[in-house]
Amino acid sequence: MKRAFAALSLFGLVLAQEAHRVAITHPFSPVNRETNFLLVWVLVFSVLIFGVVAGALAYITWKFRAHPGQQGEPPQIHGNDRLEVIWTLIPVAIILVLFGLTARALIQVNQPIPGAMKVEVTGYQFWWDFNYPELGFRNSNELILPVGVPVELEVTSKDVIHSFWVPGLVGKQDAIPGQKTRIRFVAENPGNYYGFCAELCGPSHARMLFRVLVVPKEAFDRFVEAAKGYTPPVADARGQEVFQQNCMACHGVQGKMPPAVIGPELAFLGNRVSLAAGIVDHTPENLKAWIKDPAAMKPGTKMPGFPQLSEEDLDALVRYLEGLKVEGLDFKALPKF
């Protein structure tokens, strides 16, 4: 109970400062506006039908209650054929209208957009990989996209079925091993968008989040430029040593697709707004805690813990990792959706 009240008051605070406003109704892409349009239509019809039927129910409950001492039987009516026709045809008509709107919207939403920028999205247990084949760089867990540019995500998985969902921008598609699904949209609003895995995939299905960071085009172009010619900065020499001894077997820092993918790309870790696949805020403390004991934050994670690292080595490693970034970009200032 105490915990509940603590949590409740905490998110009053959180709400005031840091809360993401996640919603499927954000009109921040043409696709979302399309679904909002469908929602309006179905809600209008729903309110109508609900009103009529619930109204009938309320009327019945009030008007036809048996009174104490009531004699005889009510009229023994067996049916009304005309009524049957009416309450069959009206729903058919409503359904056909809604279906027509649905089919039109579906064709629209699934239409390939010529010239779309391609990003290869791959789901793993329990993180996300983003490869930009045309631009020649790779990032993990935070998908950086430009405002106003059509994007085509090619989504797949290398283990079990996951699902890629960023509600504030577009509907989801499943990430299926051996197959590719496609999500096409234009992000029209800068923001830090929460993303979620939406298909049960293991103990940390709830801890396989991500972010979509939509930035103005010129900021995106700057990032791409830096990423293409990226050499990982060495903010701490000892930290780099520790990294090479302990982390390099699974993690890359070049910002490019490795020959075999084992773990997330860390090239742009310093720029991240979140850690461990979107589950905690990016702070040095959280990073340190994660490295020491990943399983505590993410049950079933494949990343082992590193309790054997000394405090000094851990701090050096964190300094090194924080230094892996592209300068002049601040994603933390983006509005949170």
Binding site: T35, L38, I49, A54, I95, T102, S163, V170, G171
Partner: peptide, 27 residues
């Protein structure tokens, strides 16, 4: 039942509208 199933049926129609389901599915 009548009251609740009315709402449940309506939300079922909403889920049949595929682009809406792209958002609602698995939520």
């Amino acid at each position: 039942f009548i009251f609740n199933f009315l709402l449940g049926g309506i939300t079922g129609v909403m889920l049949s509208m595929t682009p809406l389901d792209y958002q609602f599915h698995d939520s």
